[in-house]
Amino acid sequence: MSHHGLYIEARIRADLDELWARTQEPSQHQRWDLRFTEIAHLPHAEGEPQRFRYATRVLPGLTVAGTGISAGEKERPDGTRTSALRFASPHPLSLLAEGSGYWRYVPDGDGIRFLTGYDYRPRWGALGALADRLLFRPLMGWATAWSFDRLRLWLEHGITPERARLNWLTELAVRVLVITAGCTGLALESALRLLGPYAAPLAYLCPVLLIAAVCAALFKAPLPCTPAARRCLRRPPARARAPRLLRTLENPR
């Protein structure tokens, strides 16, 4: 495994049982988690850890699937809850070969610290390791944090995951349009100078307005109804450790 595991933490003001249900029930989990298109429980013997299948639609007509095994501790003496899992994908196009992780639910005042730590082994040798370090791992970290904030919006404000995604796409489209229009306007600004002294004041004012608009589109904080990865903590505290429960799970081969 990599020595640079991923850590994401969100603070969610919600009922602990409700948060547990929306993260443990596959039909609920797949609605808010950007990393998965489908999650389904598999048959298992009573008393054994839960097995599951997950799938991600990479491209239209191309779905990468894998299996996993999970276990949860819903009642702990300190009032927290824990869920641990191991997963693997035999699909040759899946960069992610196998991995493990955990979720922790830590009541904290009027909210819950919902956090995850996970790591995986990439395939494809040295090329896969390079692609993972430069692209895939940062993307996975962003997707996890974005998804956690989408879950927060659902629990705190009743914004469904589907609506939150639409809000995000709409805001992204507006930002792209503003940036495109701003860059185009800056390129055309010099043409105003050719119109003579009457257009000169406008020629000098336009770049200022266009630059201000582009900066707003690039750096303005997302709207409160839009999911944003930046709202989540991405660095683990020094005391963060994987739960003991994880050691009890076998690899889902």
Rank of each mutant, 00 (worst) to 15 (best):
Gly5Tyr: 05
Thr23Cys: 13
Gln24Leu: 06
Glu25Thr: 15
Glu25Asp: 15
His29Val: 05
Gln30Phe: 11
Leu34Lys: 11
Glu38Ser: 13
Leu42Gln: 01
Leu42Val: 05
Pro43Cys: 03
Glu48Val: 06
Arg51Trp: 11
Phe52Thr: 02
Ala55His: 08
Ala55Asp: 03
Arg57Glu: 15
Val58Gly: 06
Gly68Leu: 01
Gly68Met: 00
Gly72Asn: 07
Glu73Val: 07
Glu75Thr: 14
Arg76Ser: 14
Thr80Tyr: 07
Arg81Trp: 06
Leu85Cys: 08
Leu85Met: 13
Arg86Gln: 03
Pro90Asn: 03
Pro90Arg: 10
Ala97Ser: 15
Trp103Gln: 06
Arg104Glu: 09
Arg104Ser: 07
Tyr105Ala: 08
Pro107Gly: 10
Gly117Glu: 13
Tyr118Asn: 05
Asp119Arg: 11
Asp119Phe: 08
Arg121Ser: 12
Gly125Arg: 12
Ala126Trp: 14
Leu127Trp: 15
Gly128Gln: 01
Ala129Ser: 10
Asp132Gly: 08
Asp132Met: 04
Arg137Leu: 08
Arg137Phe: 10
Trp142Val: 03
Ala143Val: 01
His157Arg: 15
Gly158Gln: 07
Arg165Trp: 04
Arg165Gln: 09
Leu169Thr: 07
Thr170Asp: 11
Glu171Ser: 01
Arg175Asp: 00
Leu177Pro: 02
Leu177Ser: 13
Val178Asp: 01
Thr180Cys: 14
Gly182Glu: 04
Gly182Asn: 12
Cys183Asn: 13
Leu186Asn: 00
Leu186Phe: 02
Arg193Ala: 14
Leu194His: 10
Ala199Tyr: 01
Ala200Asp: 09
Ala200Thr: 05
Ala203Lys: 06
Tyr204Val: 14
Pro207Tyr: 01
Cys225Ser: 13
Cys225Tyr: 09
Thr226Lys: 03
Thr226Leu: 02
Cys232Trp: 03
Leu233Ser: 09
Leu233Ile: 13
Arg235Ile: 13
Ala238Lys: 12
Leu245Thr: 03
Leu246Thr: 00
Arg247Ser: 11
Leu249Glu: 03
